[in-house]
Design a protein around this nucleic acid. Structure first.
Lengths: 150, 150
DNA sequence: ACTTTAATCTATAAATATTGTAAACTTTGT
DNA sequence: ACAAAGTTTACAATATTTATAGATTAAAGT
């Protein structure tokens, strides 16, 4: 389950992917545009900064900007930074693997082997999509709808 | 994230898939064999019964058994019964869809469109695997290891 | 220098979900 | 009647999520 933190964080990243390169966006503006509690977003952007996804500038004319072009940022890694591993269960994680305390023999644990497959499926989607592509999802969809007229 | 409830429930279902057809298994035995708190498992099996996945019999000689052959039970539906929708976010669910309160225009929400893809990927794995196949995962793996000698 | 702007840090609180435990109750077989 | 085993209800201890408040720091403009 994606927490609101990750949801808000992703929305903020998409927002930042939409500002002209070199320019910054204010937390207050991002919050207002996406219906996110401002103080909560403060904390989220702080984490994203610590994780190296965004840069910030204080004072007048300050704000946030992406640290790298959106094409070079994987959606999966944004989610990992905010919500932790993609795997449904820790013992199925490839990035932050941890053994189960219950579980006699890992290699014969059907639940784990099943969830490894689920993890791979999730990672295959989220790690192969860049922030730029994710942003385009909405634009493409909008365009398609306008053409078809639905 | 899969909760312990779902994890325990899946382990119990795999356990039940392993008993001879027509026979029952005791909660106490399932709990002991899988390192699950007995009282917690009581509650979990109760939910699985209410959801129609297992049948139970009270009194001496009682216990639990699968309601249908394991080949006819989808892993995704077991998870849904215990942890709710597979989708990482409610507005991306196909079985229990619910609109986001924040979110001006759903069809232009990049987060939702991204998570719909994630949901589809997860469902593609979990819904196409039966309880029987899930159980075989562990057996196959075990056999492979014994042959290779690792 | 002073003021305003805007991010940053620390602390904390409210709400919710998870993970269990305890005790009383019901059904079934012997 | 008795014992075995699932059922129901209630509750409690954590842990996590979702924020909010206030003080602080840094930068820019005047």
């Amino acid at each position: 389950m994606l927490t609101k933190k990750a949801k808000y964080g992703l929305k903020a990243m998409v927002h930042l992917a939409g500002v002209r390169p070199g320019e910054t966006a204010l937390v207050a503006d991002i919050a207002a545009a996406n219906q996110i509690p401002k103080k909560f977003l403060d904390a989220i952007l702080g984490e994203l900064r610590n994780a190296g996804f965004v840069h910030s500038k204080k004072g007048k004319g300050g704000g946030y900007m992406l640290a790298r072009p959106p094409a070079d940022i994987g959606v999966g890694n944004i989610v990992r930074a905010l919500d932790g591993p993609l795997a449904p269960i820790q013992c199925a994680s490839k990035t932050v693997y941890r053994r189960c305390d219950d579980c006699v023999d890992e290699n014969r644990c059907a639940v784990r082997l099943m969830m490894v497959r689920a993890r791979d499926a999730i990672a295959d989607v989220l790690d192969k999509t860049s922030l730029e592509q994710m942003r385009e999802l909405s634009l493409e969809d909008k365009a398609a709808r306008l053409v078809v007229g639905t």
